[in-house]
Amino acid sequence: MIGIFSNLHQNLTRMLLVSGLTVTLSACGNDPNSGVGMRAAFDLMKGVSAQILAKVGVSIGGGEAAAPAPSSSAGGPLALVSEALTATDGKVMIAILETRNVVAIMGVAETNHGYETWEAADRRSLILKDGVLTASRGLGDDLMSSRSDASIAMIRARAEGHTTRSYNFLTGMGQISSLDVQCEIIEGSKDHVAAGEVDVDAITFAEICIADPLKIQNLYWVDSKGNIVKSRQWLSSEVGYVLFQHLRL
């Protein structure tokens, strides 16, 4: 019975070996809540991703100018991504907490009823269902759970329409309170996503959710199989938005 916890532990240890998994980004101080319009939001997404992936030495988007060569830092960032990909044969992604200027490489620790618990080496986790962010653990002011199945189905089908979502947070008293939002999913434009082992044509979808005065703008890059390969998704009012770039599906 030794090794009950070892699978996960080994995975995490391997991830840890990829090390320096959180990288501080000084060049990334934007406010995602400052009423950017749809186009501006897409631009922002591209810009930010380009910046970050430039840091880790991966270029994105076929139409984009080639990313600048990795900076002088001894071969590190690019090596990080490839090390992450060789450290595990499972799914790998980069997650970026915009407001905290944190980049983490994450792997799937467990899958339960379709929910994937993605962990970084420092045991902070994000929970995604079919690529849609549903919860977090260990970030402070976490999203405890959410009901998002209607949106998930629509996005994966690359369809437009109206849905509702429900976010559950912890109150200061340790109780659950829910935030219900009304969402509209709108198709954007075609784009090409290439990062790590991902190299696909995708269509962008925006999901605009409103619970006055809060306005959430989630963005998804969806490939022809319905996989979300890249996204920018709201987590909570304190943590803000998280950027996801999948490196291996």
Binding site: E119, R137, M144
Partner: peptide, 20 residues
């Protein structure tokens, strides 16, 4: 105000997930 703690959910590490 007791209703407004430093971080509502806490900043401790994530729990180990359920293994189905």
């Amino acid at each position: 105000n007791p209703n407004s703690p430093a971080a509502r959910s806490g900043t401790e590490q994530a729990p180990l997930p359920v293994r189905p």
